[in-house]
């Protein structure tokens, strides 16, 4: 018999990974499918950007894993250990943070000022469409945040990585705020467009449910006293939530078609391409929000690390 801790672990996983690792594999596959689906149907980012990202990933993988496998896997392993260790993460994120803040400020300011003041008015909606420069980045960030929580949750459950639990705790509040911003800005846009602040539009409804899911994770985290236990519980709920989010979106779309509600898109009639002069500031503000997201997540994660490790020597040295 090996180490009993490992034995418990393996028993726990064997216990649930019933025929071999069937359940684990199906879970991962499912998650991958979810991610692909979301990326494919991500409402705003042009597919070319995702394809471009895919190419970059492919090239890195080709030269890395196939040409220089040794270096590649060693680097990955080092990152895994360094980012998985709260102490290294704290140091590393401290180095990144100033740069991320600078990039976020520049991108957000340029994107918003360009979009709100200089981009041309929409041919149908006039100036009211300009709220997309807030609404779309917020919606996208809320959705991505939940996906990221699901991935972090899976990592936390499978590899018991403390950092993954900390990430979930760091992501949840900002994600919930982004979902709320998306809802409020959607409502403000709805007033001139639909004549009412609220309509049970498929996208708004999905976003509302996403907000509920965020609040559930936050509520569960706050209800459990032991932070380690709270982290694991939130991980499980995030994974279940991510699987659910896909079915929710599918079901809400179907529900909308059933009741033939309004399906007006923010870009006018669905399918019509957005003009490049409007797209550029949108992309800027979107990446700006992503960087802002990264900044808040890092700051919150760093606070959480300090709190969890407050008794350790390195935190004492860091703080004093």
């Amino acid at each position: 018999m090996q180490d009993s801790r490992a034995e418990h672990r393996s028993q726990a996983s064997v216990n649930m990974a019933l025929p071999g690792h069937f359940y684990l594999i199906s879970l991962v596959t499912l998650l991958a499918a979810v991610l692909t689906w979301f990326i494919w149907s991500a409402p705003v980012l042009p597919r070319s950007i995702w394809l471009g990202g895919g190419w970059v990933f492919g090239v890195v993988f080709y030269f890395g894993a196939l040409r220089y496998p040794d270096l590649y896997w060693r680097t990955l392993e080092r990152w895994y250990h360094e980012l998985g260790s709260p102490r290294y993460f704290y140091r590393l994120s401290g180095l990144w943070l100033p740069w991320l803040v600078a990039i976020a400020v520049v991108l957000c300011l340029t994107g918003l000022v360009w979009g709100l003041a200089f981009a041309p008015p929409h041919h149908e909606q006039g100036n009211s469409y300009r709220i997309i420069y807030l609404h779309v980045p917020a919606s996208s960030a809320a959705l991505m945040g939940y996906m990221a929580m699901g991935v972090a949750g899976l990592v936390a459950l499978v590899w018991r990585l403390k950092m993954a639990e900390i990430m979930i705790k760091a992501i949840a509040p900002f994600g919930a705020v982004m979902a709320a911003v998306s809802l409020i800005s959607g409502a403000i846009w709805g007033r001139p467009t639909w004549g009412t602040y609220w309509i049970w539009d498929a996208r708004l409804t999905s976003m509302l449910i996403l907000l509920f899911l965020y609040l559930g994770v936050i509520a569960l985290q706050n209800a459990i006293r032991d932070p380690r236990q709270a982290g694991r519980a939130a991980s499980l709920l995030s994974v279940v939530g991510v699987i659910n989010v896909v079915i929710v979106r599918y079901s809400v779309d179907w529900w909308q078609s059933l009741h033939q509600g309004s399906s007006m898109s923010m870009f006018g009639t669905a399918g019509s391409a957005i003009h490049p002069s409007m797209l550029a500031p949108l992309l800027l503000s979107m990446f700006g929000i992503y960087f802002l997201y990264a900044v808040t997540v890092l700051v919150r994660a760093r606070t959480e690390i300090l709190w969890r490790e407050r008794k350790s020597q390195w935190v004492r040295e860091e703080v004093s």
Partner: peptide
């Protein structure tokens, strides 16, 4: 499961 250190059971079957 929240502990530090090692446990080592040496049993003929699982714990």
């Amino acid at each position: 499961g929240f502990y530090e250190g090692r446990l080592h059971w040496q049993l003929p079957a699982t714990l």
